[in-house]
Amino acid sequence: MGFAKLSLKGRALKYLAQREHSRVELARKLAPHADDANDIDTVLDALEAAGWLSEARFVESVLHRKAARLGTARIRQELQGHGLAPEAVAGAVEQLRGSELERARAIWTRRFGGDAPTDATERARQMRFLAARGFATEVIRRVVRGGEDD
């Protein structure tokens, strides 16, 4: 039995079996296969009531997959893009803030070997690298400055 013959609920469960999804993301994936938008809402409501679709599990999944590679700002942006409740996003951001310096230092060390930049050009390149991954400016300064001077 392939995807073509699945009901909306079956299709949604198949997506959820692969990984956690947000309600918005799952609705977007189901939309081409539904005759009516109300059908999607009904299926998603039933999945939430049964515990198959969980905003909290989705947030934890994103944190688990992305925290080692991205800064708090990038993860916040991704969570907001999934249409999550502001409280869930704020809770995740608060959880990440405590480890941002350690995560940034680990990424910087893997990428640049832990050696402080020798000139302004290299310092700017390293800072751009961390900024593009969503780390806070103060955290970037502390990491690129080098050493364990916390």
Rank of each mutant, 00 (worst) to 15 (best):
A90R: 14
R65N: 12
G91K: 07
R123W: 03
S99Y: 04
I107L: 15
L16S: 04
W108D: 11
R125T: 13
E48H: 11
T109C: 04
L6C: 03
R65G: 06
Q95R: 15
A85R: 14
D41R: 14
H64G: 13
R103H: 13
I75H: 09
G83Y: 11
M127T: 12
L16G: 03
S61I: 00
T42Y: 05
V144P: 04
A131N: 04
E25P: 00
M127D: 01
P86L: 11
E102S: 13
D36P: 02
R110V: 10
L53W: 12
F3W: 10
R57Y: 05
R23E: 15
A12D: 13
G71R: 05
R133E: 01
R74F: 09
S7R: 11
E25T: 11
A92I: 06
A90H: 04
R111G: 05
Q126L: 01
G134Q: 05
L70R: 10
A88K: 06
A85W: 07
T109D: 06
L44N: 13
E102Q: 14
R65L: 12
E87D: 14
G114W: 06
F3R: 10
G98Y: 04
E78S: 09
Q77N: 11
E20D: 12
G147T: 05
T137S: 12
G71M: 09
R133K: 13
E138D: 15
A27K: 14
R69I: 02
E148I: 02
R145E: 14
L6P: 00
E48Y: 09
L96P: 03
E122T: 10
T109G: 02
R57C: 03
G10P: 08
E102D: 14
L47R: 04
R23K: 13
A88I: 03
A124I: 01
R11Y: 07
A85K: 13
A124R: 11
G81V: 08
T42L: 11
R123C: 01
I40V: 14
D39P: 04
N38R: 15
R74N: 13
R133T: 07
S99C: 04
D35S: 15
P117K: 05
A34G: 10
E87I: 00
F135C: 07
L6N: 04
